[in-house]
Design a protein around this nucleic acid. Structure first.
Lengths: 201, 201
DNA sequence: CCTACCGATCGGTAGG
DNA sequence: CCTACCGATCGGTAGG
């Protein structure tokens, strides 16, 4: 049945995304993926013609999961600083609840693909750039509405927020430091001159 | 001759470190490494008993290269804020001159090893923790000497500096943005309330 | 979606 | 440090 095929495909991609956050998009193996799903290796090829096609499709579903978990919730609050803070908080929540077992799919793959060449790298690159673009838009709104000083450069602000996100990842995933996400929430608030909900400075 | 053996071993490890920053410590292959050196695969096993031993030895030389490039230069300036800024600047220089082809060895491997288990992950983890520890010591000195407010938490400051380093990496390596390192230097200076050498805020 | 199979490459060893 | 080789596993295909 058609619906079954699509459900299977979705299950494969979700599992692939999970595995990729631990082993990398390249370290991910078709046999390993099949085994994790209790299927045969050739069952994977019934859904994808090559490993590269599988990788590309995996990035696509991962970006949907990311948007749903991190971007979408923040769209309910006002553009500008509020949305920026909401989006960072949503990211920290998404990281904390381990939506993917190895942390954030795009943090892991962005660093894995650093100097690679080819469609998989470009796809990861574009997904990451899209997220940075959303942050940037809101940084511009924040400056435009006078929520931030007119001398504040959106590019620099986005760079800094990205840094907090990345530091949160390394401290919580690699080092398993439980307080990393609290520190991250606190740093974001202080950067905007807000009194944190996460306790004293 | 003994000296030849050691020179070969050093050449193997240097090449391995280079490859690991592009393909990852796990994606690195013995055959690929041998080919890059114009040697045979079993020539590698004359120097290392297993891939894991090779990985561990590679991390060791990478940490020496890192210390020489990033930590050592900063030891010539006063502990505290000055040394913190010098160390960050040294990191940005080391990244800019592409000491390793894929960026910083420890940024790349720290994210690759995120949720792995075993001696290789632990080794990367300890190297990263050592660097964070050096930053932390200087953050404590800075607070102790009154260069920073007494309410400033060293852990939080180190978290932030780590974020700047990571953001510099992603923006310059993945996205190839040439101005990333200038932004990074600027952000570090502003964080300490210093007037940047890298132009206006 | 499976069994059965392909050539290529993996990490690693024997023997020199 | 090499040639020659090992079993295991890789990505991928044939045929059903």
């Amino acid at each position: 049945m058609r619906a079954d095929g699509q459900r299977t495909r979705a299950a494969i991609l979700r599992q692939a995304a999970d595995l990729a956050t631990v082993k990398g998009l390249d370290g991910l193996t078709i046999s390993e993926l099949a085994a994790a799903l209790g299927m045969s290796k050739s069952g994977m090829y019934a859904h994808f013609e090559s490993k590269e096609a599988l990788q590309l499709a995996t990035i696509d579903v991962a970006s949907r999961i990311f948007d749903e978990a991190v971007v979408a919730p923040a769209l309910h609050v006002e553009p500008g600083i509020d949305r920026l803070v909401a989006m960072c908080d949503a990211f920290f929540d998404y990281l904390q609840r381990r939506t993917f077992p190895g942390g954030c799919f795009f943090v892991v793959t962005a660093l894995e693909m650093g100097e690679r060449i080819g469609p998989v790298k470009e796809c990861v690159q574009h997904c990451h750039a899209d997220f940075v673009g959303v942050l940037r838009q809101n940084a511009e709104v924040a400056v435009g509405r006078g929520q931030l000083s007119a001398t504040e450069k959106p590019d620099v602000l986005v760079f800094e927020l990205n840094g907090v996100i990345l530091a949160a990842h390394v401290h919580s995933v690699l080092h398993g430091k439980a307080d990393a996400l609290d520190i991250a929430r606190q740093v974001v608030r202080r950067r905007f001159g807000l009194t944190g909900t996460s306790g004293l400075v």
